[in-house]
Amino acid sequence: MSLALSPALRDALARWLDHLAALEGASAQTIRAYRTDVTGFLAFLAEHTSDSIGPARLARVTQSDMRGWMAHERARGVASRSLARSLSAVKGFARWLAERDGFDPTAILAARSPKYQRKLPRPLSEPAAKEVIGLMGSLPREDWVAARDAAVVTLLYGCGLRISEALSLTGADAPLPEVLRIRGKGGKERVVPVLPAARAAVAEYLHLCPFPISDEPDEALFRGTRGGPLNPRLIAGAMAQARGALGLPATATPHALRHSFATHLLAAGGDLRAIQDLLGHASLSTTQAYTAVDASRLMEIYEKAHPRA
């Protein structure tokens, strides 16, 4: 498929992706997804227009081209949510290229994103979250590994960290201070208070860890059994064991603990803007999903208390 692209367009796509990674802090997973999305769109243009695909061809994209591509994707079974992401990637690339090549990208930017039902976060109840953390520290494994896993999930629930953020902590962060500076998605930095329980859990792990951990900023704080950086799949596996033992649903994942942090904070009267800052959400609309979760749970309680006749 790359043979269908002119060298100029291949170079432009590579530079745009480099820009996203270097200046906007996009993750490797996001970069891969955007590359697939944009090259898929360009492949459609090449196949259905019998035209060479270079920057000049993008400048001639019409609304009909955009409707044809989106219809083609739907016919392939692409879900609305995935198509919306692909369209966002195509628009981003077109906007970036238009600024450099001086063409009008209106036909691309005007394409309407398909509507889709946003999935509500699936948090754990407060008792379940506490049970998970307690059980992670007592699963049958080496003491230091159990302490490590308990420390990680305590950070997810107690500080609202993403698993990638917890595992990006280094020896320079130990012992944990009362406030952590976390660099999240898009390279956005935020300040997160660290609860005493989280500091104590990490201190217990450090006390038991058999590997020396210096205060170097490039040395992983959480280690695997061979001493290298901890693989997030190991935390996911331990979480699966815990939810199996507790009879929790498959949605009880490490990321669900971050959802639980936000939902329980909101239920306790937390300010939505403050929760947005703690989670590192770029948009308040993302954080507002937790208000829907809270309302949904209230309705469940109401219906149980007032069953229909």
Rank of each mutant, 00 (worst) to 15 (best):
L3P: 15
L3M: 08
P7N: 09
D11I: 00
D11V: 00
L13F: 02
A22P: 02
L23G: 10
A28I: 00
A28W: 00
Q29L: 13
R32L: 14
F44V: 12
L45Q: 11
A46T: 13
R57H: 13
L58F: 02
Q63K: 14
D65F: 06
M66E: 12
W69G: 11
M70G: 07
H72Y: 15
G77Q: 04
R81C: 12
V90F: 10
K91A: 09
R95I: 01
W96N: 10
E99Q: 15
P114K: 08
K119D: 14
P123N: 09
E126R: 14
E131T: 02
M136S: 03
M136G: 02
S138D: 10
D149E: 02
G158I: 06
R162I: 06
L169G: 03
P175N: 01
E178R: 15
E178Y: 03
I182W: 02
G187D: 02
K188N: 10
K188W: 07
E189G: 05
V194M: 09
A201L: 07
P217K: 09
P217F: 08
T225Y: 10
P229M: 05
R233I: 09
A238K: 12
A240D: 13
A245N: 11
L248D: 09
A252S: 10
R258W: 04
H259G: 05
L265S: 01
H281C: 04
L284G: 08
A289S: 13
V293K: 10
V293Y: 11
D294K: 11
E300D: 15
E300T: 14
K304N: 14
H306W: 08
H306T: 09
R308E: 11
